[in-house]
Write a protein that binds this DNA or RNA. Structure first.
Lengths: 227, 227
DNA sequence: GCCTAAACGGACGATGTCGTCCGTTTCACA
DNA sequence: TGTGAAACGGACGACATCGTCCGTTTAGGC
C-alpha cells in the first residue's frame, strides 16, 4: 500500500517528524537493550524514546524488526571490517583484526551480542546479497591466510562462527568483564595460528556448514525440507 | 519449624508420597528446561510431573531453588570430575579430562548450561565448603600441570571459568551442534598447552579473580565495599 | 480400622506485557 | 493560510504467568 508518490515524501518515504521519531526509537532501543537485555518491554523503549507505543509498533511491527534495525549499524560495521580485512596486504593481520574488531564490538556495545546470536539462525535463511558477498569474502580471507602459512590449514570458515558465538556467550554471561573477553580472544587467535596446530581437530560443524554455505557450492540453492 | 521428630519422618523428613513427588518434579524440571529453556513456566513443570503447582512451590519456593536442585547432580559430577582430575598421575591429562568432561556435560544435558551460567554470580557469593575445596583443588591441578611443563605458565585459574562460560554460550546458541562444541573445546585445550604460548596474553580477568578468590590469599576474607 | 498431621491440587486474584483501536495533532503542499 | 493525509499517543482488552489460599485426600503411627 505505498501511496504512489503522494504529496509528501522524504528520502525514505517518511515525513520529517516520523523520521525523527524513528531515529529516537533506535537510540532508545540500544540504550534499553543494553540496560535490561533484549527482552525488555517494548513500552520501556517507547517511553525512553519519548514516543507512544503505537508509534513504536507502527515503525517496528515486531521486536525482532526493532532489534535488527537497532543493531544494523553494528552489523554493517562487521561487514565493513571484513572488507578492510580483505584489503590488508597481510592476510593474517587482516584476519586477526577482523576477529578482534567484531569481538570488541560485542564487548563494548552491550545488547549487541544478544542481537548477534538472535540474528544467527534467521540470517542463515534470508540470503541477502550482502551476506553472500560476506561469505565469499570470508572464504577468500581464510584461504589467503592459510596459503600465507599463518592460519592453520585445518581451520574451517565455520570456526569463525564458533569463535564469535562463544565470545558472545562469554560477554553475555559477564557483561562487565572486558579482561575475560580479551583473554578469550587472545587464546582463540593463538590457537588459530599455524604454529599452534599440534593434535588433530575434531571435524568441523556440519550444521554451521549448512546454515552458512561457505564452501564454494556450484549447485543451485536447495530449500531444505523440514521433516 | 522442623517438627521435633513427630510421628512420621522419612530419612529426609519427608513423607513417602512427598519424596516421590519431589523426585518426579526434578525429572520433569530437567526435561522441561531442556525443551523450553530455563524460563519455562513453573506450571509446565508441574503438569509434566503430574503434580499441582502448589506442590511444586511447596518443595521449591523459587525458580532458582528448582533450577539448583534439578542440576545439583550435574554440579556434583563437575565436582567429582575435579577430584578425579587431581588424582590423575598425569596432571595435563587430568586437566584436559576435566575440561572435556564438564563441556560434554554442558553439551549433552540441555538446560544445564543456562543453569551453570545462572549459578555463577550467586555461587561466588555463597561460600560453601565444597566450593572452597574445589577452588583449592583447581589451583593445585593448575600448578601441577604448569610445573609438568604441559600447561602454559601464563594460564590463570580464572581462564578455566572463561573457557567454560564461553562454551556455555556456544551450546546455548547452538544446542544441537555437538561438532561446534567439540571444536571449541579442542581449540581451547590446544591454546592452553605450553607449546601454544607465543605472544603475551592480556591480563587475566580481575572480576573473575575477585568472585572466585583462587589465588592463595592468606588475608582474611574482606567484604568488598560497593561504592 | 481410626485419626491427625502432612501433603495435595485446583482455583483465583495480582501483575505485567502485548498489540490494536481510535480520537487528536501535526506536517507539508497548494 | 487552508486542508487532508500521515503521524501521534494513550487507553484498553486479551493473554500468560505468578504465587497463594483453602478445601480435600492420603499416609502411617496407634
Amino acid at each position: 500500500m505505498v501511496g504512489e508518490s503522494s504529496r509528501i515524501a522524504g528520502p525514505d518515504g517518511l515525513r520529517a517528524d516520523a523520521r525523527r521519531n524513528r531515529g529516537r526509537i533506535l537510540v532508545a532501543a540500544r540504550a534499553v537493550f543494553a540496560e535490561h537485555g533484549i527482552d525488555a518491554p517494548m513500552a520501556t523503549v517507547a517511553r525512553r524514546a519519548g514516543v507512544g507505543v503505537a508509534t513504536l509498533y507502527r515503525r517496528f511491527p515486531t521486536r525482532d524488526a526493532l532489534v535488527r534495525a537497532a543493531f544494523a549499524q553494528q552489523m554493517e560495521t562487521c561487514d565493513r571490517t571484513l572488507t578492510e580485512a580483505l584489503a590488508d596486504p597481510d592476510p593474517w593481520r587482516g584476519f586477526q583484526r577482523l576477529v578482534e574488531t567484531i569481538c570488541e564490538l560485542q564487548r563494548e556495545e552491550r545488547g549487541f551480542p544478544a542481537a548477534f546470536v538472535a540474528a544467527f539462525p534467521d540470517s542463515a535463511v534470508e540470503q541477502t546479497r550482502v551476506r553472500k558477498r560476506a561469505e565469499r569474502d570470508l572464504l577468500t580471507l581464510v584461504r589467503r591466510a592459510q596459503e600465507a602459512g599463518a592460519l592453520r590449514a585445518d581451520f574451517h570458515p565455520s570456526d569463525l562462527a564458533v569463535a564469535l558465538l562463544s565470545h558472545c556467550g562469554l560477554v553475555t554471561a559477564l557483561p562487565h568483564d572486558r579482561a575475560a573477553s580479551r583473554r578469550l580472544v587472545a587464546y582463540l587467535l593463538q590457537s588459530f595460528r599455524a604454529e599452534a596446530a599440534h593434535g588433530a581437530l575434531p571435524p568441523p560443524s556440519a550444521l554451521l556448514l549448512r546454515s552458512l554455505p561457505l564452501a564454494a557450492d556450484s549447485s543451485p540453492r536447495q530449500r531444505p525440507s523440514r521433516a
